[in-house]
């Protein structure tokens, strides 16, 4: 399975990354080389093999629903790029 520059543009868009045209050409070649090596897994017979889910069986861990102090708002906001009225401030995302 090969990816072309158009696929890459779509992936970059989903990943919220930007590349120049020259970078895209370079990346397409490089990523295809990696994907081609990864395709080596096709050699392994996996019919009926369940995908790995977790290392050790664990079940739900219940706890009492008790009220405890939480992170103070000021601390929660300390890394915000912008704050307004005690909230993370972002730019408008829809009309």
């Amino acid at each position: 399975m090969r990816i072309n520059e158009q696929d890459l543009r779509r992936i970059a868009d989903a990943a919220r990354l930007e590349f120049t045209e020259a970078e895209l050409a370079e990346w397409a070649e490089e990523l295809n080389r990696i994907l081609q090596y990864w395709a080596k897994l096709e050699e392994v017979e996996t019919t009926g093999v369940p995908p790995f889910v977790q290392a050790w069986p664990t079940s739900n861990r219940w706890r009492e629903d008790t009220v405890k102090p939480s992170l103070p708002r000021e601390d929660a906001l300390q890394n915000a790029s912008a704050v307004q009225d005690g909230h993370f401030k972002v730019v408008q995302s829809s009309e």
């Binding site: 992936i11 990943a15 994907l35 093999v49 369940p50 995908p51």
Partner: peptide, 22 residues
Amino acid sequence: MLGTYILSAEGYKTYYQKAQQV
């Protein structure tokens, strides 16, 4: 970039699911 592709509809079965089976 690779991870986003692998988790996309095209890449999932060939790469991600296969890797988890392996």
